[in-house]
Write a protein that binds this DNA or RNA. Sequence first.
DNA 1: GTCCCGAATT
DNA 2: AATTCCGGAC
Length: 185
Amino acid sequence: MMLQQTQVDRVLPKYEEWIRKYPSLGTLASARPADVARTWRPLGYNVRPRRLHWIAREVMTRYDGELPSDETTLRSFKGIGAYTAGAIQSFAFGRRAPIVDTNVARVLFRVFVGRGDRTTTSLKKHLWSLSAAVLPRQNVFDFNQALMDLGAMVCVSRRPQCPICPMRPICEAYPFEADAERNRA
DNA sequence: GTCCCGAATT
DNA sequence: AATTCCGGAC
């Protein structure tokens, strides 16, 4: 939840501090709201700590202290949307669940679509089906992680590193990116 | 200004 | 589909 629309570099130190202070959902659940809010600062989107706190309490009272692993229950919590539910399932539980965040959306769009409007609802749905389609049956954790890392480090928004990209041979957008790069030179 | 391991609300 | 929530790096 910290990573929702917030960069890894900014989350990492806060995550360490957070886990030291609240090493389990139980300790988080019994913390005071003001304390939780203060610890969160200055990550932003301050509704997130409130929702996370509430989730911790719900898990302790209604789910016997164990975070549920199924899509429907995870999505029933305020603060856990499509991406976070997929991340929890695949990263925490090793389940075969697709993810689409900003980075993955960019990678899948470039590799399999290439051009067009990226803001439409139908395209968003298409990207989710692509993410599910390319998902292997094993090593889901590593695959999803690699997909995100590719988007974060190689297939970046501005000046993507096409020359070192393993997807270049099949990438629908590569011709256009190479074109853009040529124009800079 | 754009972007970031989004989600809820309208 | 558009808006709101937030902050820091670039």
